[in-house]
Simulated scan of single mutants.
Amino acid sequence: MTVYQSIPSAGVLEAFAPGFTHTSVTRRFGVMQRALGAWIEAERDLEHSGSWDPACDHWLRDAEAARAAVGAALDALCDTPAERLEDRPLLRIARLTRALALSEDGAEFAQLYARLATSGALLRCPGRHPLALRVNLMLSEARRALAQLAALPDHAQIIEGNCVEIVPEDLAIAETACTVASDAYPPVMQAAPGV
C-alpha cells in the first residue's frame, strides 16, 4: 500500500534559500572591522600613557599607524560596488564610519554619531533569511565598535554633552527597536546596481 504525503511549497522553497556567501564588500568589511578594532585598542593604550614621556612615543606611532590602516580599509570598502542588496547597509555604515574616523570637530562627530541611532532602517538588512541574519550580525558588530570609538576620552565628553548615550551593552535593545519587519527581498538575489 502506498501512502501519499503532500509537501507544502513553502517548505520546499525554504530548502533552496541562499546561504551566506562572501562578496567583495563583506570581505573588505571584515578587514575594516579588524583595523577599527586595532585602532580602538591603540587609542586605549594612549589613554594610560604619559604624553610627556618619550618612552611612550611608540604608542603614539602605533595609534597613528592604526588610524591610517582604518582609513585605507574604509577607502577600499567605500569604493567597492555592491554586488547584492545585502551589501547596501554595509556600505552605508562604512561611509558613516569613514566620516566619524575623519571627523576632527567634536560637534560634527556628535552629529554623525547621532545618525547611527536615527537611521536604523537604513543600517539594517530586512528579512530573516541567512544572508540578512549574517549581515545584521556584521552591522551590530560595527555599531558596537563605533560605540567603543565614541566612548574614548577624545569623543566621550562631547557625546555626553550632546545627550547621546553610549552604552555598548544596550545596542541589542536599540537594534531590535530599529528592526524592519519585512521579507521584501525576492527569493533570488539580484545584483544591486547602486547604493
Rank of each mutant, 00 (worst) to 15 (best):
M1V: 14
Q5I: 15
Q5T: 15
S6M: 09
I7W: 05
P8R: 12
A10I: 14
A10D: 10
G11T: 08
V12K: 07
V12N: 01
L13K: 11
L13I: 08
E14N: 13
E14G: 13
A15T: 11
A15W: 11
A15I: 10
F16D: 03
A17P: 02
A17M: 10
P18V: 09
F20W: 15
F20M: 13
T21L: 09
T21K: 12
T21E: 08
H22T: 13
H22E: 15
S24T: 12
T26Q: 04
R28L: 12
V31H: 06
M32E: 03
M32G: 03
M32L: 14
R34P: 04
A35V: 02
W39M: 15
E41I: 05
A42N: 01
A42I: 00
E43W: 01
H48V: 03
H48T: 12
G50F: 03
G50D: 14
S51H: 12
S51A: 15
D53A: 15
A55R: 15
A55T: 10
D57L: 12
D57K: 10
H58C: 05
W59A: 04
W59D: 04
L60M: 10
R61E: 12
R61S: 10
D62P: 01
A63D: 02
A65N: 08
A65P: 01
G71P: 00
A73V: 02
A73N: 03
L74N: 01
L74A: 02
L85F: 07
L85G: 09
E86L: 09
D87K: 04
L90E: 00
L90D: 01
A94I: 01
R95I: 00
R98Q: 08
A99M: 05
L100P: 00
A101N: 04
A101F: 02
S103V: 06
E104R: 13
D105C: 07
D105I: 01
G106S: 10
A107E: 15
A110P: 02
A110Q: 04
Q111C: 09
L112H: 04
Y113K: 00
A114T: 07
R115V: 07
R115E: 12
L116Q: 03
G120F: 03
L122S: 12
R124H: 14
R124P: 00
C125R: 05
P126E: 02
P126Q: 05
H129Q: 12
H129R: 12
H129S: 13
P130L: 06
P130I: 06
L133S: 10
L133E: 15
R134H: 14
N136G: 00
N136D: 10
L137F: 09
L137K: 11
E141D: 11
E141R: 11
R144L: 15
L149V: 06
L149M: 11
A150E: 03
A150K: 01
A151T: 05
L152C: 11
A156W: 06
Q157W: 14
Q157D: 14
Q157G: 11
I158A: 13
I158R: 05
I159W: 04
G161K: 03
N162E: 13
N162W: 06
C163F: 10
V164D: 00
P168C: 02
E169M: 10
D170V: 07
I173H: 09
I173E: 09
E175R: 06
E175A: 08
T179A: 12
V180T: 10
D183V: 11
D183M: 14
P186M: 07
V188D: 04
M189N: 04
P193L: 01
G194N: 06
